[in-house]
Every structure is written in structure tokens, then in C-alpha cells.
Nucleic acid binder design. Structure first.
Length: 278
DNA sequence: AGTTGTGTTGAAGA
DNA sequence: ATCTTCAACACAAC
């Protein structure tokens, strides 16, 4: 599932869009376009040069020359795939391509989305930071400004939330989702059900280190392909080989041989070692 | 064949 | 306000 490392990997891949021009847009499911009509969206982006691509939280932002920015959220199953020539793609392998960006230099950027949860918005670039979906985001999980002190302050401010819930709340810290939340807490040796207010400063310091260590390693390994996630060339990441607890319930903890447990926190599956994590 | 689990987010309900 | 539950959607696995 695209969380910060996956979205960062895709954003890096999409850097070759810089300087290219969008020549058209096709969709068979126009509900993906939020706020604006398909006609307006297509009109606004067609024949516009791409100035750059960047990540904000789990959003991919494609900045166009006419002061508009395409803001994409892949949700769970969205994929952005460079395809040289659609004619040569076997349809049965791409039956979930519902949207296509046509490009002057780079061929086709196909948007596949099995569950159709992904979203595309179009905002004025100079007003981007005031858009609710962007302005509501908390500090980026990899921001230099997310110090141990800041993280500790966040745990105290949101004291009644379980620490795993806090990590996944995009309006508190942006970028972390269900997979990395479990992995980060395992590395930090903190139980996911702990209330945030009971996290000590020393633990916040460890937690901050674990966030950076896990997310940076996952970026280095180009993400976690546990189901649908692929990069923009259709390749899997390899962090799934590094997972210590996610979906490892019933298996022995790599540190202590106790079995990994699966619980539910905030309606989401959660994995932890009951001995190593306190 | 019907049910469940899957993860992200916003909206609805309490 | 704050918390919980659900809906969006498709599909694999049971």
C-alpha cells in the first residue's frame, strides 16, 4: 500500500516528467476527478508543460506551467505506470487501467486502480498549501523539523490516542500507514496499544530514530510490495523481505522466539511482539 | 455461494 | 468537540 516510502519512490520515478508536456487525458471512470468536472480538468492540463513533481504527505503533486497542480492520492491500489505503447499491452493484465495521461516525450502514464479509491484533484499552484487536503496534514514523518522534542510534544498533546493511531494520523504526522506503523513500533520496542501520554521522552527519542530508520530503509529498498504496490515501471519494491512483524502473526519473533500477535487497533490489523514491545 | 479481510480517508453517527 | 463506525470499491481467500 502506498505509504511515504512508496509515494516517494514513485515521485522520484516521475521526475522524468519534468519538462515533458501533457498532450491529453483519457478516463473510463471520471469520478476519480474531485471538485472539478472532467471537461474542465482535461482542458486545464492539456498542452501544459510539467515543471516538476513532488510529494506532500502521501500525495503526488504534478506542477504545471499554467499555475495549476495535479494532486494525486493512490489510496490503496493506485499505480502510475509508464507504458511505451498501449497497443502492446495485453488487456487482461491491465484491465484496471482507468485513466491515462498522454505525454509528448514519455509516451503514456497509465493510472491503474483496482479498487477505484484513488483521487485526482486540480488546484491553483499558488493556493495549494491552503487546500484542505494539504493544509490539514501534520508534520511530514521525514521532516528535519520532526525532532524528538517535537514528537514527544505530539504524544503529550494527543495523549489519549494509542501510539499506533497517532503515528497513522495524517493530520498529526503525515506519511506513515498501517504497515510501517507496526514495523516502526517493533523497532522502537513500544507496544502499539500504549497510550501516547505514557510515552516517556526517552521512548519518544527512540521512536523518532525508528521512524527515520524504517522509512529511509524502505525508500532505499523502493517500498513494500505486499500486494498491489508497484513502482512506475511496474517493478516490486523489496522491503517486504525486511518485515519483522507485519502479517507475521503466528511466527516466531526474530529477537526472542515468542509468537508475533495480531490485534486490532482503530479498526486496523496490528502486529507486535508481546515480549519485545512494552 | 456467501462472508471476510484488505488500507486510506472523509463523512456520518453517537 | 471527540470518538467510533461506515462507505467508497474490487477481489482473493476462506
Amino acid at each position: 500500500m502506498p505509504e511515504l516510502p512508496e509515494v516517494q519512490t514513485i515521485t522520484n520515478d516521475l521526475q522524468l516528467l519534468t519538462g515533458d508536456t501533457i498532450t491529453g487525458f483519457w478516463t473510463d471512470w471520471q469520478r476519480i476527478i474531485k471538485e472539478k468536472s472532467l471537461t474542465y480538468f482535461t482542458q486545464q492540463i492539456t498542452n501544459q508543460k510539467i515543471l516538476g513533481v513532488r510529494r506532500i504527505g502521501k500525495f503526488i503533486c504534478i506542477n504545471l506551467i499554467n499555475n495549476t497542480t495535479i494532486v494525486i492520492h493512490l489510496r490503496m491500489t493506485g499505480q502510475l505506470l509508464f507504458i511505451k505503447n498501449l497497443e502492446f499491452v495485453d488487456e487482461k493484465y491491465h484491465k484496471h487501467i482507468h485513466h491515462i495521461f498522454y505525454l509528448q516525450k514519455n509516451g503514456i502514464l497509465a493510472f491503474s486502480d483496482v479498487r477505484k479509491f484513488a483521487t485526482i484533484s486540480l488546484f491553483k499552484t499558488d493556493g495549494l498549501s491552503t487546500q484542505k487536503s494539504i493544509s490539514n496534514l501534520g508534520i511530514d514523518a521525514l521532516s528535519e523539523k520532526l525532532s524528538s522534542e517535537k514528537l514527544y510534544a505530539l504524544t503529550q498533546k494527543n495523549g489519549n490516542k494509542k501510539i499506533k493511531d497517532l503515528l497513522m494520523r495524517q493530520d498529526i504526522i503525515s506519511g506513515i500507514g498501517n504497515i510501517y506503523a507496526s514495523e516502526i513500533l517493533f523497532l522502537a520496542k513500544i507496544a502499539p496499544s500504549r497510550l501516547s501520554k505514557n510515552i516517556s521522552f526517552a521512548e519518544a527519542k527512540t521512536l523518532k530514530k525508528s521512524i527515520v530508520q524504517i522509512l529511509k530503509k524502505a525508500i532505499r529498498l523502493r517500498g513494500t510490495s505486499v500486494s498491489d504496490y508497484r513502482d512506475s515501471l511496474g517493478n516490486k519494491g523489496s522491503f517486504q523481505n525486511e518485515l519483522k512483524v507485519y502479517k507475521k502473526h503466528g511466527q516466531k519473533c526474530q529477537n526472542c522466539d515468542i509468537l508475533i500477535e495480531k490485534t486490532v487497533i482503530g479498526q486496523r490489523s496490528t502486529f507486535h511482539c508481546p515480549k519485545c514491545q512494552n
